[in-house]
Design a protein around this nucleic acid. Sequence first.
DNA 1: ATCAAATAGGACTACACAAGGCGTATATAG
DNA 2: CTATATACGCCTTGTGTAGTCCTATTTGAT
Lengths: 133, 133
Amino acid sequence: MLKLSKKVEYGLIAIRHIASVNNHISTVKEISEKYIIPVDVLAKVMQKLTKGKIITSYQGAMGGYTLARKAEEISVMDVISVIEGTQVGIAQCFSEVPENCSIYTNCTIKNPLGKIQHNLEHVFSSMKVSEIV
Amino acid sequence: MLKLSKKVEYGLIAIRHIASVNNHISTVKEISEKYIIPVDVLAKVMQKLTKGKIITSYQGAMGGYTLARKAEEISVMDVISVIEGTQVGIAQCFSEVPENCSIYTNCTIKNPLGKIQHNLEHVFSSMKVSEIV
DNA sequence: ATCAAATAGGACTACACAAGGCGTATATAG
DNA sequence: CTATATACGCCTTGTGTAGTCCTATTTGAT
Ligand code: SF4
Ligand code: SF4
């Protein structure tokens, strides 16, 4: 509960790595070996980050990945959103349509939790990749 | 991911309810019916909150629960910790012994995530039950 | 042309956790 | 004694996480 997935952690490690080598092209093999990350899992993460326009891919021999934007312009929240695919919410009513929660109309805590949700988003959005290199 | 469990939500709803009736004794049946919460699930949550000294139980007929401390002295973090039982951490190395993570020594993001963890704890700890009544 | 290196992506398994249901024991007011 | 209430363990079901395996496609180098 309240835990980041390994995929997100792997994504952050990979992005930080690319930033740390001055955005030189890096391969999945290289990163997975250096940080002992399962290569297939990391590969899928990189593909998602590519689709999310956070990194850029170069196919074929001598290919790999670079950052698609400057490290100062990538937040931890960006990485989480892209990898998870779904809206990040501390409660069902924030990540899906509110009516999905069977007790929505009776719920007395959605407003206060909304405030927490907002603060949470701020914490994740304000931390940029440039700060973790 | 990053979502509160229903147990925690139920616990918060229940605690807020008791606070809202000026700490008069309340039963599981009463609360579960009012907010449409499965009675068995709520019962277990209340038992955990009792063991965690957040509420006080009165057994037998005419029994029920009251708050064990003032609403201003109960934080959302207290409720989460007691109901979950385990340490709340956004990564494995914060909620268990660090060595459990197989890539701990190679991990380059544990320090920045530690900062996020700290901010997170502040957000949950600073919100008190008295603010959600 | 061929080969090797690299990304792209689908299918599948194993496991852990979340959510809830059920049954029974114990305490206590009236 | 009985009705009401908490205490607590066991079990099922569904969902999500983490990881493996396999194949296709792209592309630089020989
Ligand atoms: S409505 Fe209340 S209970 Fe339902 S998800 Fe939102 S917060 Fe949780
Ligand atoms: S060490 Fe790094 S990877 Fe392992 S849990 Fe902590 S943060 Fe996540």
